[in-house]
């Protein structure tokens, strides 16, 4: 069968698509914060359609410097993320069903662009959240903005903030890398076949 997938690739893609369902029951992203008076740290977990952790405490602290209260309603993404991930899963399963290399390629491209879009979206939210400060804030530090890092660690006044993937995020990354690996492996299988 021309352009059809190796059985291993096919199973891998199917597993990847199913693995994506973890996004519905594991947190995708985490923001951790420490300050001298918060040695145990504060955390915020971002889920597919929700926020958990010390969101209220973080908002209460941030209001001193004029940052807006973090609320689920702040993120329109939460309304359609569940469908987006559903579409991703569907495409993955379809790719396995179609069993063609182009389908796998399509899956990988959609997956990568979805990840990238999420990161850009997160950056844009962070920029807005960190820069658009209430002019009536009690504490105004000249020239200071409070954009959280996209990935990694950053010092924001007395807080050390860390941002990075959580369980669901890691699974997503593994899925991206694995399906990309499958794509690369397909090239290898194809060469072997043609020889």
């Amino acid at each position: 069968m021309k352009n059809s997938l190796h059985v291993i690739s096919r199973i891998t893609v199917a597993i990847c698509a199913i693995a994506l369902t973890s996004a519905y029951f594991t947190p995708l992203w985490q923001i951790l914060m420490w300050a001298p008076q918060y040695p145990e740290g504060l955390e915020m977990k971002i889920w597919i359609n929700n926020l958990t952790g010390n969101v209220k405490i973080i908002s209460a602290l941030n209001h001193y410097i004029g940052m807006h209260t973090i609320e689920v309603s702040m993120f329109p993404e939460f309304k359609y993320m569940i469908y987006c991930v559903g579409v991703l899963i569907l495409i993955g399963l379809l790719a396995a069903l179609i069993n063609k290399r182009w389908a796998l390629l399509a899956f990988v491209i959609v997956l990568c662009s979805a990840g990238l879009a999420l990161l850009i979206d997160f950056y844009m939210w962070g920029y807005e959240y960190g820069h658009n400060l209430n002019p009536d804030a009690p504490i105004k530090v000249p020239g200071m903005t409070y954009q959280p890092p996209v990935i990694g660690t950053k010092q924001l006044l007395n807080f050390t903030a860390f941002s990075g993937p959580d369980v669901g995020g890691w699974i997503f990354i593994v899925v991206v890398l694995t399906s990309f690996g499958a794509l690369v492996a397909e090239q290898f299988f194809m060469k072997r076949k043609t020889i």
């Binding site: 990075g164 890691w170 593994v174 492996a185």
Partner: peptide, 25 residues
């Protein structure tokens, strides 16, 4: 085997990366 080892490597990398998180004071 290759896939398994790749996945394992990725897993290890993930653990390493997450342990780079800064500790509290």
């Amino acid at each position: 085997n290759k896939i398994i080892s790749t996945a394992t490597a990725l897993g290890v990398a993930a653990v390493l990366f997450s342990s780079c998180k800064p500790q509290g004071p």
